[in-house]
Every structure is written in C-alpha cells, then in structure tokens.
Amino acid sequence: MNYEQKLLKDLKKNENVIQVLDYDLFVKEWEARKGTLKTGAGFAAPAGDSIIAAKLLKEFGFDAQKVTVKTYAGKKYVIFKGYPGQREIFKGTRYLAQNPQVVRMAVGPKGIVSSVKSGFVLSVVLSVGIEVFDYVIRDDALLSELLGTITSDLIKIGLSSIAAAVAGLAVGSAAILGSVAAAPLIAAIAVGIVTGLVLEKIDRKLGATSALIKAYEKMGLDLREMKYEFNRNLNYLERNPHMISCLFGPCSARMY
C-alpha cells in the first residue's frame, strides 16, 4: 500500500457526512408548512375522539338504548344492556363511572370530562410547541408575539374544551340521547370544533390576539423602564452613600 492509498484509507475511516441546509431555505420551508402543521394539531384531539367513537360503535353496534348511567348508594354506575359475550371491551354489565376502562372509552360523565381534558392537553402541547419552535428558528420573532399567540391559543382551546365538555355531559345526561354510547363524544367533538371557529371569527373581528401582543409589548417596555429607573436610582445611591439612610425614613441629607 503506497502513501496515497494509506491516506485515502485513513480519510475514509474518519469520514463524516454533514448535511448543510441553508437557514433561509429552512425558515421558508417551515413558514410554508406551519399552517398545515397547525391545522393538523387542531385535528389531533377530535381525530382521537372520533377513533374512540368508532370503537364504541363497533362495541355496541347501531342499536340505541345500550348504555345508562344510574346512581346506587351515592355512586354512579354505567350499565350496559345487551349480550356481554358479544362485546370485546366491556365484558361486564355494570361498571363504576370511575372505572379506568369506562373513562378511557369516554363513556359516562367521568369519561367525557377525561376525554375533553386529554384533548385540551394534547391541543395545548402541540399548539404551544409549534409556536415555540417558530419563535426559536425565526430571527425576526418577538417574545411579545410568542406570548400573545400562546395566550390566545390557551384561551381559545380552553373555552372550546369547556363548551365541548358541557355539550358532552348534556347529551350524556339527557335520558334517551345518552343511551347511544358514542353520542356524548360526538356532541363534544362537534361543539368543540364549532366553538373554536366562532372564537377565531371573534378574534379576527375584534383583533384580540393583536391586542394581546401589543399589551405584552407595552408590558415589556414598562419593565425596561422600571429596570432603567431602578439602575439609575442604584447608581445615584452608589454615588451618594449618605442618602441610603433616606430610604428608611425622613432625612436631611444634602443631595449632590
């Protein structure tokens, strides 16, 4: 092996492949895909609930009058009618409303609330994650913008989750409607989506997000002003230590 071949071998041994991506191109690509990602994030929770609703339909079939919620000795029970042998998940006939299986399948009041809660958490995590990533990679992103959009997200997701929970609980508690296992979940999905849209329209009309961003901007300015004033006073006291006593009571020290 001659010197050249040895060098080539050594170089190949330490070979590292580095993928270089142009920053501007990356930001451009991200901005083009951010909308799609946000839409996907908005669909995540309803899609999860829809899968559970489909599972419930598979479990109980098209027939109504299969689920009732009754209270015995102060405890809420979910009672399933029909043939337990035909079911895959709920093999029993009576479950406590807090039963993990019942809650996981979003049946009964606890199940609906739990489903809405997990939907809220998922939406918040995805939505905030996207906004934070956007803030990190963009050079021109402002903290006030990030805080404004996150606050707006939390308000919108929170309010639509509350409306979804109310709708789900109402449908679940209504005598006949509640007997269709998937009905409360479907009501929660529909109301959650529509409330979110109404809030988007209100936000666009009133400019709530813009107002929040401006408020955070102003708060930032105020904080900067406060910091400046604090430093100025501290510097003054450093230059005039005899004035320190004036901080704790009346004094007659001369100012320089």
Binding site: K38, S127, S152, G196, E200
Partner: peptide
C-alpha cells in the same frame, strides 16, 4: 392571506 387574521389556533384559513 387575510391580514386581519394575526394568528389561528386550529382548522382552516382566512
């Protein structure tokens, strides 16, 4: 893009 829409949380686009 509708400039009145500063930010959207979920579905769709104005």
């Amino acid at each position: 893009h509708d400039p009145r829409e500063v930010h959207r949380t979920g579905r769709g686009e104005s």
